[in-house]
Amino acid sequence: MAAAQPATDEVARRSLSESVRRRRSGAAWEGVVEATIYATGLFTIVLLVGILFLLGQQGLRLFFEMDYPIGKFFTFGNAITDNTTDIEKFRFGILAPLIATMWVTLVTLIIAVPLGLATAVYISELAPPRVRLLIKSAAELLAGVPTVLFGFVGLFLLVPFVRDQFGWGAGGMSGMTAGIVVAFIAVPLIISIADDALQAVPLDFKENAYALGCNKLQAIWFVIIPAAISGITAAVMLGMARAIGETMTVLILAGGNSSIPEAPTESMRTMTATIASGFGNASAYSLLRPALFMTGAVLFLITLFTTVLADLVLDKQRKKFAR
C-alpha cells in the first residue's frame, strides 16, 4: 500500500479550500452531455404533446377552411366515408361511430370487468405464488398478442357461431361479436392494475380482519376490496379506454355499417374502425381527411379524459397507503 501513497497523496492532500474551488476536469464535456439529455427530454415531450395540437389543427380545417357545418358533424346520423370534395355530397357525422363505440365498449365492460376483477382477486389473494406468477405472465402474453390476430381468429371461430346461433348483425359480424373479443384484449390490463391495487393494501389490514374473526372471503369482501376500491375503479376505467381505442378487432368483427346502431347486436362501425377503413382512400384535398382527423381528435380526447381521471384516482389510492 505504500506504493499507492505518493500518487494519491499528491491529489488528496492539496489544500482543501483551494481544491473545492477548482473546476473539475471534464466538467465542460459533462455539461455538453447534460445539455443533450435536457434537449432530448424536452424535444420528446414537445413532440408527444404536439399530437393533440396537430390532430386538432388538422381536424378543425374541416369547419374553418372547408366550411363543413359543425352542427352537421356532431348530429348527422351516418358516417359515410366518401372521398369527396363536394360539400353537398359529403354526409359524415360522428354520432353513429360514437354510439357504435359506446355499444362495443359496453359489451366489453360487461364481460371484462367481472372476469378481470375475479381473476385479480384470485391471483392476488388466493393463488399460491408460483401460480400467481404463471397467470400474471400468461395475462401479459395475452396482452401482447397482436389484436389483428384476435380479429382473425374471431372471424373464423366466433362469427360463424354467432351467425348460426343468433343471426346477429351482418352474417354474424356485430358490435356484440366485436365486444366479446375486445373483452379479452382489455382484460389483462384490468387484471394487472386491479392486482396492483389489491397488493398495495397493507398486510395488517388483513391481519386485523382475521383477528376479528373474519374468514378469508369476509376479509376480502369487507376489508381488502374496499381498501383497494380506487385502484379497482382505475382498472375499470383504463380497461374502458383500451376498449374505446381498440381498432383491428372492431374493424374485422363489428360489421362496418356506417349508420347509427340501435342495439349492440347490429352491424356497426366504431370511431376507430371508421378512421382505419376510411383513411386509406381519403385524398389530401377531400373533406374526408379532416373529418377523420376530427374523429381522431374526439377519440383522443375521450381516452385522454378517461386515463387522466384514472390516474387521479390511482394517485388517491397511492396517497392512502403512502407511509
Binding site: 381505442g245 383522443f300 381516452t303
Partner: peptide
C-alpha cells in the same frame, strides 16, 4: 402526459404520423 401517452389508442398515433 407521458403516462397517458402510453394509453393513447394506436390509431391516434397513426393519424399523428400521417399529419
Amino acid at each position: 402526459t407521458i403516462i397517458n401517452l402510453a394509453g393513447v389508442p394506436s390509431i391516434v398515433y397513426g393519424l399523428f404520423g400521417a399529419a
